[in-house]
Amino acid sequence: MDGEELTEQETALYDRQIRVWGADAQRRLSKAHVLIGGMKGTIAEVCKNIVLAGVGSVTLVDDSPVTEESLNANFLIPSDETLYEGRSIAEVCCDSLKDFNPMVHVSAEKGDLSSLSTEILEKFDVVIVSGCSLSTKKAINGKCRKLSKRIAFYSVDCRDSCGEIFVDLQDHSCTKKQVNETVECRLQYPSFEEAIAVPWKILPKRISKLYFATRVIERFEETETRTSGETSLADLPNVLKLRKELCEAQCISESQIPDSLLERLLLGKLEFPPVCAIIGGILGQEVIKAISCKGEPIKNFFYFDAADGKGLIEDISNPNSAS
């Protein structure tokens, strides 16, 4: 690859990881700009991982104040409350994150995720959002896709001890190792809107139940105009009603979405820190893969549930529309 060589300082700091992904990948990382919205525990993990890895810059967007709840799984928030005064959670996290790697430019931007303009998005190579509504997710993903520049889009959320990652790399080419040779591969991704529009009945039977359950909760929050995670067990009857409607419309059995799973997700306002570490680790790695174009990325959903310990990749794309 063209471009300047890594400095001595970079080679020393990144020695162990250059041995994993090579100097080319490290150079690409150092030129990548990442936008991150929604400073929850899982996002704190993602931020840590990509700042350590040595991306060019990280821009944080979250105007909400620091609350008791936000302390739960977010280790970027120090205990000293005087630091929160009149500041957004993004600003507080930004200060901690800067220390992790002086070679990465970390900043906090004012603003609301749902109103991010394409002019702003265009400055980035990777956009990651967490804790936003169904419509915001669709809107940001849609804006990223409209730009001529290819932007990698991720959404990530943890509820209770379950986590979901969505990946849209649009049209992605990468190299991957196969036995002893490196091969080129090319992947076509659907947008979030396209993916969730894939009829449920055509999906493979053994697909993760978390996929359906998350769609039900997401739809519930959207119709009730709740913010993500603002649910409780009292919502269960209405959620079960919604499940019935959706399952009937999609022609799948309601048993695909167990009550117990929906209960867990409704209660799961707080993230479970070990799951944040796992989901944040997997997503951090995905971002590195996407930027470096090395290694086959997840297409296009990833699930982890601490209850069974499996970390599963699900490909949810319409076989008819894929090229």
């Binding site: 162990r16 990881q17 991982n49 070990p274 796992i278 997997i282 951090g284 790695q285 590195i288 310990g309």
Partner: peptide, 23 residues
């Protein structure tokens, strides 16, 4: 790398493994 038998290491795998240990 060969002489020091340096094992490749990245933050993300360690983060995932630590989460699994706590579970």
């Amino acid at each position: 790398g060969i002489a020091g038998n340096i094992v490749h290491a990245v933050a993300t795998t360690n983060a995932v493994v630590a989460g699994l240990i706590v579970i």
